[in-house]
Simulated scan of single mutants.
Amino acid sequence: MSCAILGPRPGNFVGAAGLIQNASGEVWPLRREMEEEVNLKLHGAELLEMLSSAGPSRVANGDGSYRYTALFRVLE
């Protein structure tokens, strides 16, 4: 396994989140890797919004990253 060293440039981290409602209308939040984590298959989704940080997040050693999340409503 290899690791990339970014140096002074911030990295990009992309995630996805899904919103599932049951028959009663209750909302179930769902993180990425639905099938792998909870054994559910996604058949349809609607992109609700793209979210991002206003600037790079920094950790103690000075490394930075931009964070992005795609928010979907799961249709089936």
Rank of each mutant, 00 (worst) to 15 (best):
A45M: 08
E33S: 15
A17H: 14
R73F: 10
L51F: 02
C3T: 10
Y68M: 08
G64R: 13
G62C: 04
I5A: 10
E26N: 06
E35P: 00
R58W: 04
G64K: 02
V14F: 15
Y68F: 15
R32L: 07
Q21L: 07
L51V: 09
D63I: 00
C3L: 07
Y66H: 05
A23P: 01
S2W: 09
A23G: 06
E46K: 15
K41D: 05
E46Y: 05
E37P: 00
V27T: 14
V74P: 01
E37S: 14
S52C: 09
W28F: 12
R73M: 02
R58C: 00
G11R: 14
M34D: 05
I20P: 00
T69V: 12
N39A: 13
S24G: 15
H43E: 07
N12E: 05
A17K: 14
A70Y: 12
E46V: 03
E33P: 02
D63P: 00
E35L: 13
L40G: 01
A60D: 11
V59W: 06
L40W: 08
R58A: 00
A45T: 00
G25D: 03
C3A: 13
R32M: 12
W28R: 04
G64H: 01
S52E: 12
G62D: 03
S2C: 09
L75E: 05
E33W: 15
F72M: 03
P8F: 06
V59C: 11
S52L: 07
G44I: 10
N39Q: 03
W28E: 04
I5S: 02
L6H: 06
L30G: 11
F72L: 10
G15R: 15
A60R: 08
E49A: 08
R67K: 06
A54D: 12
R31G: 15
A16Q: 12
E35V: 01
V59H: 11
S52Q: 11
L48W: 10
E37W: 08
E76Q: 04
G18M: 04
S57N: 12
P8H: 10
G15C: 09
A16P: 00
D63F: 04
R67L: 03
E49T: 07
G18D: 03
A45W: 06
N39W: 01
E46Q: 13
G44N: 06
Y68Q: 04
A70N: 03
G62Y: 07
A4Y: 09
L75R: 14
A45C: 05
R58V: 13
M1P: 05
L71R: 08
G62I: 00
E49Y: 09
S52M: 10
N61S: 11
A54P: 09
E36L: 12
L51T: 05
Q21H: 05
I20D: 01
L47R: 07
C3P: 00
G11K: 10
